[in-house]
Design a protein around this nucleic acid. Structure first.
Ligand code: SF4
Ligand code: SF4
Lengths: 143, 143
DNA sequence: ATTAATTCGGATAAATTAATCTTATTAAAC
DNA sequence: GTTTAATAAGATTAATTTATCCGAATTAAT
């Protein structure tokens, strides 16, 4: 099974898009995020906690506490989430799993794949999450 | 850690490229493929065995036996290997892990991501492995 | 103060993927 | 025929990823 992002990263992206799309409240609890996105509560808690460490998300403990975006949605890029959770290795290591990927010793598909990889990186770097709020709300309501 | 292809798939691609690039011999044993590509022998054996089931690779048992390409390298596309080992789900399921990806209920990044995905699919579908023999040999010699 | 609802950290369990081992079968070489 | 070297198939183990559990700390409401 091929995968682009780990489950952790998928959930992280979903949760961040969720927080960015709903702004009426101050704090959103892991419980309610998990319920709306239909993903395991304990798992998304852990993920949100690590996003707190990366200063992308903020949190407040205790009753009525929860999570919120620590930055303006137009300052959070998709790549920031990917980098925090999965790292940026996909963009630097060989697609074919050959060791020592570099411009000196390119893997066989270097030139073809390289273009796609750059495009993906550029897309994830240029798109900020405020750009997706409308579509996110629509999607969440369908879950 | 993000991954594009599973380890199995990476090794499969490597092994196929290997077979396509070396044509002086009839059969290549798992032992020698594993040694040259520096990957576990037992693992690559299993992978080659399943490629035999997919009719991409042929095999001969017994002493001096081994594996060989069952088709002309210019008829084997990269996507064929990916499909056999990992399946084509990456190209149809949501990058963000939202369920029910479709054109009715696109995930938030649908339009941006969709382009990249099509490009990746097209590339893997258009490139046949005979195209990479020279670069593969160069790479193998560096391992 | 007490209670309830929350994040947080660490430990643990379950599931999946990666790798290895074991035995059987096949075929060439001697 | 015996030995040797190979694939094949199935079982097992190891490692990694995904998911859950538990107890402590925190905060708001009663
Ligand atoms: S295509 Fe080139 S740059 Fe991309 S992983 Fe392979 S060697 Fe590295
Ligand atoms: S971007 Fe669109 S097509 Fe691609 S996974 Fe998301 S919903 Fe599906």
């Amino acid at each position: 099974m091929s995968v682009i992002f780990s489950k952790k990263c998928e959930y992280a992206l979903q949760a961040i898009l969720y927080l960015a799309s709903k702004d009426e409240k101050e704090y959103f609890s892991a419980r309610e995020i998990a319920k709306d996105l239909k993903i395991p509560k304990e798992f998304i808690s852990k993920i949100l906690q690590s996003l707190v460490n990366f200063k992308i998300v903020g949190s407040k403990k205790g009753k009525n506490g929860g999570f919120y975006l620590a930055k303006n949605p137009n300052k959070i890029r998709l790549i920031d989430i990917v980098e925090a959770i999965d790292g940026l290795d996909v963009f630097t290591t060989c697609v074919l799993g050959f060791p020592e990927c570099s411009y000196d010793s390119p893997c066989p598909v270097h030139s073809e794949w390289g273009k796609l990889r750059s495009l993906a990186y550029d897309m994830l770097s240029s798109q900020t999450i405020d750009h997706f709020t409308e579509k996110t709300l629509k999607k969440i309501n369908q879950l």
